[in-house]
């Protein structure tokens, strides 16, 4: 297993290189003149030329990319055009807030979805199943930024239970976490239910019953571990949409995280900042997927034995 983890960590390197190239390349397609954006429309041509030269923007894409990668290897994500500060510092100072949001959002989603999914599956077609499936369907269909707005209307403007923005204290966390986690929760609930339904029809579940294993034990000891395999996959994939969703949730709640920084940077055409955010998010996503793969091996011995 250790070897596998190390191997996977090493495999992150080409992914980071690939991702950074992809994002760098896309950003380099941007029309318009960065120096002009920084200095404003009225800036003299000479100043713009000078700044372009200074920022190295006159060099071909590949050379600029090479320079960028050398920096990246040293943990340097370049300098923000807008603030003139190191992008790495700027992103990292906001990263804990985003991580906090994503972490609690995922916890909220997982803690609620898996029990609901199990109950739905074991009581298929019951009232509780129908109700949770309707909620799950609505949860998948509801855009999180709209849900956020509705929560603000209900719980902060009218009931005044929670603040509508900021990040101070646990109260500020409640609405953003629900906003961010609901979509994931709905998806994971549906996956848990269908996976559980599939598993409880398997022959080995019948074998367990024929052995005299009691109902609860059949579900929680024999079925659940098998049913979790696809659920873990979905949780990993959902983490990607969670990061995307964090950008929107942060926008709704003026949460001072990387998402807000990213949106502002995009609007300001601050290429190094955008690049930095997307690369950090992608690395984060890759690490989560690595964790998912390891968890996978932990649950399923068939996968584990492949890595030995």
């Amino acid at each position: 297993m250790h070897k596998y983890v190390i191997k996977r960590l090493i495999m992150l390197i080409p992914v980071v290189i690939g991702v950074s190239f992809l994002v760098f390349f896309i950003m380099s397609l941007a029309p318009g003149d960065t120096a002009r954006t920084i200095l404003g429309e009225d800036a003299p041509i000479e100043a713009i030329e000078a700044l372009n030269e200074e920022l190295g923007l006159n060099d071909p894409v590949l050379i600029r990319y090479g320079r960028y990668m050398v920096g990246l290897a040293h943990g340097d994500l370049g300098t923000s055009y807008k603030s003139g500060r190191s992008v790495f510092t700027e992103v990292m100072s906001r990263f804990p807030d985003t991580l906090k949001l994503a972490f609690w959002g995922m916890i909220f989603a997982v803690v609620l979805s898996i029990p609901i999914g199990i109950i739905s599956a074991t009581k298929q077609y019951s009232l509780i199943d129908s109700v949770s499936m309707v909620f799950a369907l609505l949860g998948v269909a509801t855009p999180n930024f709209w849900l956020g707005l509705m929560l603000i209307i209900g719980f902060s403007l009218h009931l005044r239970w929670f603040p509508s923005g900021g990040s101070e204290g646990w109260k500020a966390l409640v609405l953003p976490v629900i906003t961010l986690g609901t979509g994931c929760m709905a998806n994971i609930t549906r996956t848990t239910r269908s996976s559980m339904l599939e598993v409880i029809r398997q022959d080995y579940i019948r074998t367990a019953k024929a052995k005299g294993v009691g109902y609860r034990s059949v579900i929680y000891k024999h079925a659940l571990k098998n049913a979790l395999i696809p659920v873990v996959t979905v949780i990993g994939l959902q983490f990607g949409s969670l990061l995307g969703g964090a950008v929107l949730t942060e926008a709704v709640f003026s949460w001072p995280g990387v998402g807000t920084y990213l949106v502002n940077s995009i609007k300001a055409k601050d290429t190094p900042a955008v690049l930095g955010c997307v690369i950090i998010f992608s690395i984060c996503f890759s690490i989560v997927n690595l964790c998912v793969d390891i968890l996978y091996a932990y649950i399923d011995p068939r996968i584990k034995s492949k890595y030995k």
Partner: peptide
């Protein structure tokens, strides 16, 4: 049903048709 559970596996046992799918894949 509780009494049935004590009978299954101790008084009556069953061997199923397909051994490939009749064992729980995640238990030794």
């Amino acid at each position: 049903e509780k009494e049935m559970e004590t009978i299954r596996g101790s008084q009556v046992s069953m061997i199923f048709q397909d051994p490939m799918t009749s064992l729980n894949p995640v238990m030794t």
